[in-house]
Nucleic acid binder design. Sequence first.
DNA 1: CTGAAAGCGCTTACAG
DNA 2: CTGAAAGCGCTTACAG
Lengths: 329, 329
Amino acid sequence: MIKTISDIAKLAGVSKSTVSRHLNGGYVSSEAKEKIETVIARTGYEPNAFAQNLKAKQSNFIGVIVPRLDSYAAARTLIGIDEKLKQHNYQMLIANTGLSREREIESLYSLAKQKVAGIILLATEVSARHQTAIDSIKVPVVLMGQEHSKYYCVTYDDFNAAYELARYVIARGHRKIAYLGVTETDIAVGVRRKAGFRKAAGEAEGLDISYHTTSFAIEDAIDAAARIIRETRPSLLFCATDNIALGAMKSVFSQGLKIPADISVVGFGDYNVSAVVHPGLTTARFDYYQAGFTAAGNLVRLLQGETVQRLIVCDYQIIERESVDKLNF
Amino acid sequence: MIKTISDIAKLAGVSKSTVSRHLNGGYVSSEAKEKIETVIARTGYEPNAFAQNLKAKQSNFIGVIVPRLDSYAAARTLIGIDEKLKQHNYQMLIANTGLSREREIESLYSLAKQKVAGIILLATEVSARHQTAIDSIKVPVVLMGQEHSKYYCVTYDDFNAAYELARYVIARGHRKIAYLGVTETDIAVGVRRKAGFRKAAGEAEGLDISYHTTSFAIEDAIDAAARIIRETRPSLLFCATDNIALGAMKSVFSQGLKIPADISVVGFGDYNVSAVVHPGLTTARFDYYQAGFTAAGNLVRLLQGETVQRLIVCDYQIIERESVDKLNF
DNA sequence: CTGAAAGCGCTTACAG
DNA sequence: CTGAAAGCGCTTACAG
């Protein structure tokens, strides 16, 4: 069985060096080139990646650290990354942390140890330990979802998305609004979205706003929304993610109330189910696929020594469906 | 910087061979062992995987071929696989085919070329070309989701799940039922589920059944269900997956009808949203995580030369929520 | 333009 | 129980 570069060399009547040079785009006479190409085509020879990597001290793997696999946003992002990486002959290597901060840090080190060429980190937070890890491994890293001035980042325009969505619901006459957000250790979702909302709220009159915090888990959102509805009975639940919004919708229905007639709901993300639930959820859409594609593109350019914009902010789009009532006529 | 086995050998005052032997559980005097361990602990030495793989002509990667990443079932399965694999120091390497048959075959070959130790194939179909590929690569393969007599498989009990779910809806008085399934090239979902349903239907009296086919895409299900409702107006839509059921629910609502009062709906899979939509979807739950965990466990045992049951059929569970009306009293 | 040789970091008979 | 040596399959100065 034909397996190694020596076999090819022998069959082509040249040396290993010449075959290797041809494979790597070096000086080879057109005569030798032709013979080698014929043999390779006939045998279907493929270089052994381990041997190549052993020499190169680096692989064609790109590590992608993801907080969870069973999330629409994560999945779409991965698909975008994978697509771009394939174009450039890189292999995506996924490290799933299952929402563990600890495993996020570990993955940074262990991917580096595995000599990945680069890392894309779908970040939930950029702690001091994250920074230590990123700085100490000598591997290019691109952050997604969170911004940090020291690193290459691809983020979403959380602030303006929230601002515009908030203006939209206020314009539709909502005054008594409950904001259902997440922890502020998450700058993008916890801080920025709330800040955008707050700005719009500050520009309007006669508002009655209450702020609440829950987790990213639907179950928690169901409970939190149930409490809010009982206690403050807002006309609208402004939820920091579509998952939270889905949980909120469940709560509204469970109490025998109608959406949007009794209570309106909005979210962020535009997951695939957001259009399918009834009523359709009004939300701020982020193009996760495109963001992943962009992040991978940047990383590839970095690896090729090209220069890259430090921060790329992906656009959003307000998707108007049926979950927000119009209170003013 | 300490990097190679030679460095460790030098620091411990022994030869590379001895260090390697210690690392691989060979004969080493307790004296040498101690010195080596001290040095390794102090330096944090980690063997270079490329060099190891180059010798071993195999990696610790397990390839997982998945039809799509943005599916709840796929994601949960991957998490289960990853968990088990980590326990045994294997690395999951995901090949996403984006629902392309072609890329499924290619992935089989390309993963083999990358010298993965084994492959788990989340199969949508086992065609002749699949078989050729599986047989020609000399890598152990475990099939998931579809059964094939020649290969190791982990499947779901599609037939009995459908049978029991069908008996349930019939027992609740439904007589005019539309079955909304998928192509029969998919044995598990297309053939088995329909067969289970058909058996239950055959055991009952006075039924008025119509059979319809759609794709796995929610949008197609919405259209298909809309047509069925207009044309035959069944009392229940029996959908072969939860995604189809979600699309069907959307259709029912869009026509101003109520679930379950006007039309009932059931599905298969119990995705995370199935509990969250309103009304909650009655469905047959499959434990994807557990199945993935089991498949990975089997593959690991295969790699260790242990013997493994060829076919494992995972159990299901009927989850009764609010989407099925009770028509008889 | 080409080939012999060394080396990437590890493992594994083999001789001692 | 240990170490020198060969070899896994490739790449890359180097001399020609």
